[in-house]
Design a binder for these strands. Structure first.
Lengths: 111, 111
DNA sequence: CGCATATTCAACCAAATGGTTGACCAAACT
DNA sequence: AGTTTGGTCAACCATTTGGTTGAATATGCG
């Protein structure tokens, strides 16, 4: 009964998870590396990754003992369709996106 | 500390709330009328509307004893920017959106 | 083999969420 | 004035969420 959108939006509602997505935008990463910048247990991050995976926003592939996480744009694409329909938005300014990313990334290089 | 995106995505994560947005896409509505198609108390709908308002997705204006709700596309626009950046999505098929709407609208004319 | 590394599992906890009901307030009709 | 109508508030409840810790599992290394 519950839509995909439920899962995707719920996944996106958490800043930690959005930050993870932003990180994965740059490159695929192992779970431990994903967890590194956050002040949070590895187990917590592992749970977040499960949620992102269930939402279809990322995929995880185990290679050796390392589990690699990669961004999966398809779910976002469907959601984007939904959103765009609502606003009949003008073509989007991609530069604004970069500013968003900076807000979303966890503090890595500023104390 | 917590971003607007938190609020907006959390608001969008609930199917009832998305259905309300879909209804408001067609026209502005009074709270009671918004509540009508749902099998849920008026108070519950009222709460949902508060959440949508706080997220900036709708606005409410009281005229007489009736409180009118209208869709507020700005918050969605900002969110859409965020989403698009992630996927670098192709231009979106708006027809697909109409199908989404049907999934989202609560059952009104089938008993 | 024995240890270290990578990740998850399980139990637990506090706080947030989504709903209910009944009282309440304000505006409108007669 | 009295009553109906529109909507919120407050208290309550069950479930979900986001985190913790410690044990468990699995892979790789010397």
């Amino acid at each position: 009964m519950s839509n995909d959108l439920d899962t995707v939006f719920a996944a996106l509602a958490d800043p930690t998870r959005r930050a993870i997505l932003a990180m994965l935008l740059e490159d695929d990463m192992a779970v431990t590396d994903v967890a590194e910048p956050f002040e949070m247990s590895l187990a917590a991050i592992s749970k977040h990754l499960v949620i992102l995976t269930k939402a279809g926003l990322i995929s995880q592939e185990k290679r050796g003992r390392v589990k690699w996480c990669k961004l999966e744009p398809d779910a976002l694409r469907a959601t984007s369709v939904w959103m765009q329909g609502f606003g009949q938005f003008e073509p989007v300014n991609l530069d604004a996106f970069e500013r968003f990313l900076e807000t979303e990334l966890p503090a890595t290089n500023d104390t």
